[in-house]
């Protein structure tokens, strides 16, 4: 199967290469998962005002996808686009690292 950083072919139209495409793996509707989703959305809303796509995968519902994407930890966030693909694990409490991984320099976020 593919590496965790493997690029998955998308069914949809070729997306805008500059637009942020994210896949988030969470474990059901646990309070921790809900908290992580909320924190990620807040961050993205704040720093990517031009918009982003976020697909949320419940590992219990789609175990095959968990395996095919090589996900072991939850929450796991895969930044599909723009390239390079990055994998983030954790509940996004370390905002600076999240933003850096998503391609947003930390100092710019500090300004806003």
């Amino acid at each position: 199967m593919s590496s965790p950083a493997g690029v998955q072919a998308r069914d949809e139209e070729p997306p805008n290469p500059g637009r942020l495409q994210l896949t988030l793996f969470v474990s059901g509707a646990s309070p921790a998962s809900s908290r992580a989703v909320r924190r990620l959305r807040d961050l993205c809303d704040q720093h990517f005002p031009s918009g982003y796509d976020l697909e949320i995968v419940d590992i219990y519902q789609q175990p095959e996808m968990v395996a095919s994407r090589g996900v072991l930890a939850v929450p796991t966030l895969i930044k599909e686009l723009p390239l390079p693909v990055r994998v983030l694990i954790g509940d996004f409490t370390d905002e600076a690292r999240v933003l850096a991984a998503l391609g947003l320099p930390h100092r710019r976020t500090a300004k806003s």
Binding site: V74, V87, L88, I89, G90, F92
Partner: peptide
Amino acid sequence: AVATGEFDL
């Protein structure tokens, strides 16, 4: 992977 906080397996 980049660790951004709490996680489990």
